Amino acid sequence: MSTTLFEKLGGREGISNIVNDTVENHMNNTAVNARFLPYKSEPEKLDKIKKHTIDFFSMGSGGSANYTGRDMETAHKGMNISPGEYMHTIDDIFAALDKNSIDEAAKKEVLYILWSLKGMIIAK
């Protein structure tokens, strides 16, 4: 029986840690932090975004979560995210994966997912 990506990422707790670390990385990344710093003054909204992100990656990686957020195009509509910004967010995610000791095989699976989403996120 094969291990799901959800399990490789440490289940819901592991994904929660990765999302929290990623958001912190985004807040400290001058290439993208202008999009994230305003949420510091809106902790309820930031918590909601984190919960949706945790649910999205939990469900998409084989976990039993029920993602109830918007689809990727709708969620990013009007943000006009550039390809460079998207690459910076991927770098931030990979730094979080490294911090949480995620192995190379699982990181490749995450990259595949992130790459598959880029057309739904960039320049929308």
Rank of each mutant, 00 (worst) to 15 (best):
K50T: 06
L37K: 09
K99E: 11
P38Y: 07
N66E: 13
D92V: 04
Y67V: 12
I54K: 07
I81W: 00
I113Y: 10
A96W: 00
I113S: 12
H26G: 07
G63R: 10
E73N: 12
E44Q: 13
N100H: 08
L9V: 14
R12K: 13
A105R: 10
K107C: 00
E13L: 11
M27N: 05
V19F: 02
I102Y: 03
S61I: 04
M59A: 12
D92R: 02
D103C: 08
I18W: 01
E44Y: 06
N66V: 13
L111H: 11
I54Q: 06
T22I: 09
F56G: 02
Y39F: 15
N80V: 06
T22C: 08
E109Q: 15
G10E: 04
Y39T: 05
D47R: 12
K107T: 03
S64R: 01
P83N: 00
G11K: 02
I102K: 09
S16E: 10
E104V: 11
P43Y: 02
D91Y: 00
R12Q: 12
I121P: 03
N20M: 11
E44C: 05
V19C: 04
G62L: 11
D47A: 15
W115Y: 10
N29I: 10
Y112A: 15
I121C: 02
K45G: 05
E73Q: 14
K108P: 08
K50N: 09
N25E: 12
A65M: 07
K124V: 07
A75N: 10
T68M: 10
I15M: 04
A75V: 14
H52K: 13
I93R: 05
N100K: 09
P83V: 01
N25K: 09
I18V: 14
T68N: 08
V110H: 06
A123T: 11
N66M: 08
K8W: 01
K40H: 04
T4N: 03
